[in-house]
């Protein structure tokens, strides 16, 4: 991988991690978690595991939707 792209993906992971830990509102935490997940995918695709990348990309939003079920029950 090109060094600039690698540094950008690591920076995206660390920015998302810090924002997820620091945020207080559950929706802000989920949006920051989406930023962190976006930084993980180029590493999976760089190793050549494209089938794993497709499977994880289609399965990961289901986890977020399950967490949103708990969020709505708490705020309502």
């Amino acid at each position: 991988m090109i060094d600039t792209v690698m540094i950008a993906c690591v920076a995206l992971i660390l920015i998302g991690m810090a924002a997820t830990i620091a945020a207080r509102d559950p929706f802000d935490k989920l949006i920051s978690l989406s930023v962190m997940i976006a930084g993980v995918f180029p590493f999976i695709a760089d190793r050549g595991y494209l089938d794993v990348a497709i499977a994880v990309a289609l399965v990961a939003p289901i986890s977020t939707i399950f967490i949103l079920m708990a969020c709505r029950r708490e705020t309502a």
Partner: peptide, 17 residues
Amino acid sequence: YVTRLINLEIPAWGLLL
């Protein structure tokens, strides 16, 4: 509970890496 559940996603992706 919701904060702990959302924070639990972070080590999961770390273990994936």
